[in-house]
């Protein structure tokens, strides 16, 4: 059978094949180079981070043993067999967990309120001064780059041990994260309603209220709910540095090897986080549906 594809003469084919081979070689070299750089970085990191496979394999039994012990009471029985004994501290833990959720709520709300006002100053399309926008952006960046736990450590010095330090740490971190997201939402609005309001002679804040706000509100709420989910998780560990919530008891239980207490508190946190995720997820989907329904 004769191939229906026309063959180019040898003279023309050769340079084409050579060019193709050169390109493939260049790409392979590039990939190999990236791979080598990666390997060197990993090797150096292994030395710096004191990675030791022998230690790992010698001690991995401890890990599985640890997970196993989490699910056994002091008496050696499985935790499921005696829930009353397992959750002996339930009233106290429930109160602390409640405090954790309140901390997350107040922190998120304060951060969102701050971010709400900062967003209109930071958004490039509606800002009144470039310098103000620049300054607000850098401020938000600072707030979200410094880890919440570091803020918590600082605030513990000022306010003493307790939830106050944790709430402020969450609020500042949320302010930074939400400030950026809100500003991006404002930058993506349709400018026509804003111009329409401005055309009536309205001052800046009025044009924002009636031109921009209706467009961004549902997105703001959606992002705030998402942040609330994250903050519930975060505030559960702020107690590690004494900043209130269930983290203090969890930290103590882990440090003192009260295995069944650790698993009891962890299960409570995981269930609470899951319930809040489902709940806020429902609200967010409802909100998105509301916007698309318009």
């Amino acid at each position: 059978m004769i191939s229906p594809i026309a063959q180019l003469p040898e003279v023309q084919v050769r340079p084409l094949i050579a060019a193709y081979a050169a390109q493939v070689r260049a790409r392979r070299l590039h990939t190999l180079l990236m791979f080598a750089v990666m390997l060197v970085a990993v090797g150096l990191s292994c030395i710096v981070a004191e990675v030791s496979p022998s230690l790992f394999f010698a001690k991995i039994g401890n890990f599985t043993g640890y997970i196993g012990r989490l699910f056994h009471l002091d008496s050696g029985a499985l935790v499921i067999t005696d829930p009353v004994e397992w959750y002996w501290g339930f009233p106290r833990w429930a109160r602390l967990l409640g405090e954790t959720i309140v901390m997350a709520y107040v922190g998120t709300a304060l951060g969102a309120i701050g971010a709400f006002f900062l967003a209109f100053l930071a958004a490039a399309n509606v800002t009144q001064s470039r310098w103000l926008s620049f300054a607000v952006r850098r401020f938000c960046e600072f707030c979200r780059t410094v880890p919440g736990l570091v803020f918590a450590l600082m605030f513990v010095i000022a306010f003493g041990l307790g939830p106050m330090a944790g709430v402020l740490a969450i609020a500042i971190h949320s302010l930074g994260a939400l400030g950026k997201l809100f500003a991006e939402v404002v930058e993506n609005i349709d400018s026509k309603p804003v111009e329409g309001v401005q055309a009536t002679g309205a001052p800046w804040h009025v044009s924002m209220r009636f031109g921009a706000l209706p467009q961004v509100m549902s997105n703001f709420v959606s992002y705030t709910l998402l942040r609330f989910e994250i903050n519930v998780r975060e505030s559960a560990v702020l107690g590690f540095v004494g900043a209130g919530g269930i983290g203090m008891d969890l930290f103590e239980a882990i440090r003192k090897f009260y295995y069944s207490d650790v698993s009891a508190i962890l299960v409570m946190i995981i269930v609470t986080v899951a319930v809040i995720d489902i709940f806020t997820g429902k609200i967010r989907h409802r909100l998105i549906g509301l916007v698309e329904g318009h």
């Binding site: 790992f56 930290f251 946190i269 995981i270």
Partner: peptide
């Protein structure tokens, strides 16, 4: 995912 990194760190400190 819902167990925080710090809790994992504490558990692994107990191991290695």
């Amino acid at each position: 995912r819902s167990v925080d990194i710090l809790i994992w760190a504490l558990i692994w400190i107990g191991v290695v």
